[in-house]
Write a protein that binds this DNA or RNA. Structure first.
Lengths: 130, 130
DNA sequence: TTGCTTTTACGAAGAGCTTCGTATATAATT
DNA sequence: AATTATATACGAAGCTCTTCGTAAAAGCAA
């Protein structure tokens, strides 16, 4: 099968992407070991997922060596942006503000983090004035 | 089938919940008509989904009359909170702040909304002082 | 009453995701 | 060379979600 555009990663694929983003190009064995630190996953399960990810264009693999090496083909920021857009539209009917309010209200944010967010907002507002 | 705890709604179920939240108790026909304002959906498809939602505990139905009336059994705020928690953990590895920054950075919020968020932050900060 | 309409009930197909068993190939070990 | 270990390839089963066809029940209209 082939894809005209890169589809959005599933939950399992996202788990693997996080490992690839954090550690860079990795073998199936390495990824499977990282996954097994969280929960039990069979080696061939991880292999299959990574093959599918390569097929989907979410990862590229280098087959020069016997042990194939996979690398993320999508960036963390872009992927999170895409997922967020989808999530905001489905769960919050497009209201990013509602989401932000929920996130701020539910999770304990440190004073430093709150200041960071405030600074970002002020920066955006001053940019808009221009 | 029965459930020990109420599962999180799927995308289609969420669409229906939004209609029930907005319009209150509704018949299958009414919900189906609202859905068809967005995209084509068969009547029995909507019916089946709503029956499943009642089974899952996401909705309750009143069968007194021939035309059953369904009502949301979960609140909008609680549901969004649950979905958000799940989303933050999978897509942002638990960093709610990263998510907030992304959401704000993507220009998905209007200037008025930004002011509201700033007000919320200031309120939270003053609460912390106490 | 005899059909027409609306409604619910049931079941099953099709798609996508996850999981893993089995086969096969290749390398390393003895 | 024979055995063992490690890799990839393939296919299929099980699950959930979505979709809808068909049947049965219940009210309405002629």
């Amino acid at each position: 099968m082939s894809y005209t555009s890169i589809p959005k990663p599933t939950e399992s694929e996202l788990e693997i992407l996080h490992i690839l983003w954090e550690h860079g190009p990795s073998s199936v064995r390495f990824v499977n070991e990282r996954l097994n630190e969280e929960r039990e996953v069979g080696y061939t399960t991880t292999l299959k997922l990574m093959q599918i990810m390569a097929d989907k264009g979410l990862a590229v693999r280098n087959t020069d060596n016997r042990t194939h090496i996979y690398e993320a083909a999508v960036s963390e920021a872009d992927t999170q942006k895409r997922l967020l857009q989808k999530f905001v539209s489905t769960a919050f009917r497009g209201s990013a503000m509602k989401l932000v309010m929920q996130a701020l209200g539910n999770h304990e944010a440190s004073p430093e983090e709150l200041d960071e967010i405030k600074a970002l907002i002020e920066k955006m507002e001053s940019d808009d004035d221009k």
